[in-house]
């Protein structure tokens, strides 16, 4: 869309010089050639990455202390993971149908991803329930506490995504939408979903191997 300048190049400009002024006058006032919403989603993903990374650091630090007792991973977690992978995959498909403006497919796809996302959340709650009934309380060992914390935070992120999914879907169903805006919204949701899948795989892997 446009030339993107590196940060060092920007920082070495001399805005007071006549030759630079000629170039600068031509500038359209945007730093990146992407929409504000996309930049917003990227920023949010960056902040979330920092949050999860700090939790992982805390996990790694706390793990080394003598009282740590790892927690079993119920088989249902594998199912949930599979559901989340499918969820991402279908979101990718919705994005493709949106790009092709295939409204029947878009509609079907949006329903599918919503359904999968909610079943993932329900699956996670069932895992919680199973673990609690086996006596793995948050207070009994900190490994359990980390498990509940990670799943809860990841779930909350997914709920946030579902809010925007709901807005796109209802707009789409009402029919009075402008195509580019729906395409863009679906694209952004898809990016976010892939991000959440990645986060989950990292968290799940971490808990699996420790």
């Amino acid at each position: 869309m446009k030339k993107e300048e590196g940060i060092f190049k920007i920082l070495s400009q001399k805005p007071w010089e006549a030759s630079q002024a000629v170039i600068d006058n031509d500038h359209d006032g945007k730093t990146f050639g992407i929409s504000k919403a996309k930049l917003g989603v990227r920023t949010i993903m960056t902040v979330s990455t920092v949050i999860f990374s700090l939790f992982i650091v805390a996990y790694a630090d706390r793990m080394l202390i003598h009282d740590w007792r790892s927690m079993p991973e119920p088989w249902l977690l594998w199912v949930n993971t599979a559901v989340l992978i499918m969820n991402s995959y279908f979101f990718h498909n919705v994005k493709i149908s949106a790009d092709q403006n295939n409204s029947k497919e878009i509609k079907r796809g949006l329903y599918t991803v919503g359904l999968l996302a909610y079943s993932f959340l329900i699956g996670q709650i069932i895992v919680w329930y199973q673990l609690l009934s086996l006596g793995y309380f948050a207070a009994s060992n900190v490994a359990n506490a980390f498990f509940y914390l990670f799943t809860a935070l990841h779930g909350l992120h997914l709920l946030g995504g579902l809010y925007f999914w709901g807005r796109v879907t209802s707009k789409f169903l009402k029919g009075n939408y402008k195509l580019p805006s729906v395409q863009h919204a679906i694209e952004l949701c898809a990016i976010y979903w892939h991000f959440l899948l990645f986060v989950w795989l990292v968290l799940f892997g971490l808990m699996l191997f420790t």
Binding site: I10, P15, G29, K36, G40, V47
Partner: peptide, 24 residues
Amino acid sequence: FTMGGLNYIITMLQSRARGMTLMR
């Protein structure tokens, strides 16, 4: 703050006036 911060940086990066480079 995160919601506000999102606004501050994206406004500064993406909605400046014509001719307003970052270094201006």
